[in-house]
Design a binder for these strands. Structure first.
Lengths: 213, 213, 213, 213
DNA sequence: AATGAATGAGAATTCATTCAT
DNA sequence: TATGAATGAATTCTCATTCAT
């Protein structure tokens, strides 16, 4: 269903906003505990402390809750990464390799933090992206914003970067980091987290920056 | 449920093997067309041209079909990767940078081919890995084999490689390449396939090998 | 399965109570018409005039309906037996043989009435007791109450009774009467009902009471 | 289904008879272990060591196996009770009360032995009698034979017996004893077996025979 | 707005029996 | 006769969503 009937109200009143928040919090917990598909709307309502039917006053369907939760992760990336960037990197970017590594570390750290909020829920969201076209499209749009930001970032450090195709590099940088972090959080590959993240950082740096051998 | 009642027969007779094959082929098609979750066992049987009940003579449930298909992918990867390796790289590995790049290209190509077999089915499988613990565990074991193979490969080219932590590098190499290929096949990121793959190759090479600047 | 998920609601609202009653009435009819095993939950819902799914709002499964109906029989027996006892026997129990026979007649009559409510359903219940352990246990508990009541009754008429082992006598009395009545109601043994009941009464009296030869 | 297609062969050859026996033995075990309804024909065939389809060479359907097993119990009663009667009671029946009690004991003992062969299977059979009309009719016919025998028996001891309605007495005697034994074997009423059987014997004797008070 | 009972299509699974080999 | 794969109707139970109150 791509067309929504949109009967769910947009909450304005304080109590309404609170109710919506209660539902999202319930989903936050339950989707992490049992998974998106194994959680049903009755449980969701019950955990939120509302009646089954009331749920549909705030969301048109279950999927919408999944989407809203997914957006929280994106907001987290934005909030952490975008707004706080200059605070952490410094305004007058010192143009040297050290800054480059700092930059990469910062990106990895931001993504890691967004995954860390609720790793199991993040996993569910990832599955939903794979399984549902609507969700995938929304996620795709958000990804584009992140990538656009990364492009800007890389362009701001052009003098450090030896890669010509900045756009492709940004995509590569984002996908690669996100995947490795995801693996660490979810799949618990046999390998140690720190070792893997160190290599990730090294890989990206050796790729992006002009290294003095 | 990890314990199965295992009522499904293990086909020995020619007819049985054929029927099982018919089911797997039906699943192959349907999971790609409609997705794993949206396909039900009745459809599966119907597409296979057998009776509903017959399905349960060969598989205890839908998940088992999913697992069996996933295993086919892994076998495909192994087969492609292992058997063709020497043909492509050459038996007497010339110890120079060119060989290193050849190696990386080979790995990327192998993974790409495994994804290309049935991209949509591959996507479903990826989702299943995220959503089901049993599937995840099986997949995890198979991934280990691939990574083990990569470790061997990298160790055989030690003199080219500047990375110390070969294990972590192998994991990184596998995950990174797999994810990028997955993105290309499934999500159709705005970026052009060739550009992205070129950068991936560059990234891995600049990371792994001693580059003469 | 002895542990139930207990998703069935406990009806409080008037509408709920009515719906539950509708289901029980449907079961009452259908179990008698077609038998417990040959009735399925869809039919049950249909006869009750509700949707299939609604059934599961009130009972976790068919068995629970069977149990609930069985309990109704027991309640019926208790109600009939306990409340009408003094009306029929009289308050100041005349201590003579006549009272003894009255007592036995009363017991037989009470059991007979409970069977007469819905003989076919009673038969199904009896089968269920044999086939299902949970049902058997519940029935066993209820039987104990009846037997306990009979023990009290017999003890109140101790002076008439020549049997030493009152407990065993009560069990014997209950099982014997119940079985004979059951036979009469269900199996239609070739023999005439009145003749058999007369002999039953005689048998019990001659066993229990001091007869003046 | 009251009309049978009767495709099952009547085994004459030794091997055929053995196969049929294997099926019956498998059912004997399985119906006692899991119950008639919870045992399926595949299991039955497997336990018998034959192929699923072969089952239908010997029985037209599952019910027939139940019936044949039921008949075994009846044969047991006949064998034990009817043929061995004179051996145990003695040919020249001493016409005194002692013989009466012996008689009752003998009847109870015979019934008890038939129940004891395989109590759980006997329970299943009892349920089947309740649930299936065909089975009930066959059982009814067999019951009549037993009752007829009891009538003969009682008539042979007429001089001891004070009951007028011998027919009704025979039915009562059979049903009562059978039920109590059944209870003892299956339901494990709280009461001790010996106590209950003693009272049963007393009850029947005090009813049947002229007691010198 | 809130409630929670009702809906009903849909999914998984079973199993007595048949039938081609 | 034996085999065991195949059949497919039947059954139980779930759950997102609606709707009367």
């Amino acid at each position: 269903m791509t067309i929504s009937k949109n009967k769910a109200r947009i909450p304005v009143q304080k109590r309404s906003i609170e109710t919506k928040e209660k539902i999202l919090n319930a989903a936050w917990e339950l989707f992490a505990e049992k998974g998106y598909f194994k959680t049903n709307t009755n449980e969701l309502a019950e955990r939120a402390g509302i009646a089954t039917g009331s749920f549909y006053g705030y969301f048109n369907n279950k999927k919408e809750v999944g989407i809203e939760l997914m957006m929280r992760f994106y907001k987290e990336v934005s909030k952490k990464a975008l707004s706080n960037f200059y605070i952490q990197i410094g305004d007058n970017v010192a143009e040297n390799l050290d800054t480059g590594r700092k930059l990469v570390r910062f990106i990895i750290k931001s993504l890691k933090e967004s995954h860390a909020i609720n790793p199991l829920l993040h996993k569910e969201t990832t599955a939903l992206i794979l399984l549902d076209e609507d969700v995938r499209n929304i996620s795709s749009e958000e990804d584009k914003k992140i990538i656009a930001f990364l492009i800007t970032l890389l362009q701001q450090h052009k003098q450090l970067i030896r890669v010509d195709d900045i756009e492709a590099a940004a995509v590569l940088l984002f996908r690669t980091s996100d995947e490795i972090i995801h693996r660490i959080m979810i799949h618990k590959d046999a390998i140690d987290e720190d070792r893997l993240l160190k290599e990730l950082e090294d890989m990206i740096c050796s790729y992006l920056f002009i290294t003095v051998s």
